[in-house]
Computed example of a mutant assay.
Amino acid sequence: MAEIYEKVQKVEKLKKNYRIYWQNHEPMIVSEDFLVQYRLLKDKEFTQEDFIEMKKNMSSDQAYEQALRWISYQMRTIQEVDQYLKEKNHKERVRAKVIRQLIDYGWLNDLEYAQCYMRTKRREGKKGPRAIAYQLKEKGISENDIFLSQKEYPREKEYENAKKQAEKLQLRYQKKSIREQKEKIRQKLYQDGFQSDIIQEVCSELEFSLESELEKMRPVADRYWKKYQKYDEYTRKEKLKMMLYRKGYASDDIQQYLQEKEEEQG
Rank of each mutant, 00 (worst) to 15 (best):
A2W: 04
A2S: 11
E3A: 06
E3R: 09
I4K: 14
K7S: 04
K7L: 02
E12Y: 02
E12L: 04
E12P: 05
K15F: 03
R19C: 04
Y21F: 02
Q23N: 12
N24D: 03
N24F: 02
H25D: 07
E26A: 13
I29T: 07
L35K: 03
L35N: 01
L41V: 14
K42W: 04
I52A: 08
Y64G: 09
E65S: 12
A67I: 01
R69K: 09
W70S: 11
S72Q: 12
Q74E: 12
R76E: 15
T77Q: 09
D82C: 07
R93N: 14
V94A: 04
R95M: 06
Q101R: 11
I103M: 03
W107S: 13
L111I: 09
T120L: 07
R122E: 10
R130V: 13
Y134Q: 07
L136I: 11
K137E: 15
K139D: 13
I141Q: 06
S142N: 03
S142A: 09
S142M: 03
D145V: 12
L148C: 01
R155E: 15
K157P: 00
E160C: 05
K163N: 14
Q165K: 00
E167T: 10
K168Y: 07
L169D: 10
R172I: 00
Y173P: 11
Q181M: 06
K184A: 08
I185D: 02
Q187S: 07
D192T: 10
S196L: 00
I198W: 01
S204I: 08
E205N: 10
F208D: 08
F208A: 07
S209N: 12
E211P: 02
K216I: 00
M217E: 15
R218T: 09
P219S: 03
V220L: 10
D222C: 01
Q229E: 15
Q229M: 13
K230S: 13
K230E: 09
K237L: 15
E238L: 15
L240H: 01
K241E: 08
K241L: 12
R246I: 14
Q256G: 15
Y257V: 12
E264K: 08
Q265C: 03
Q265R: 04
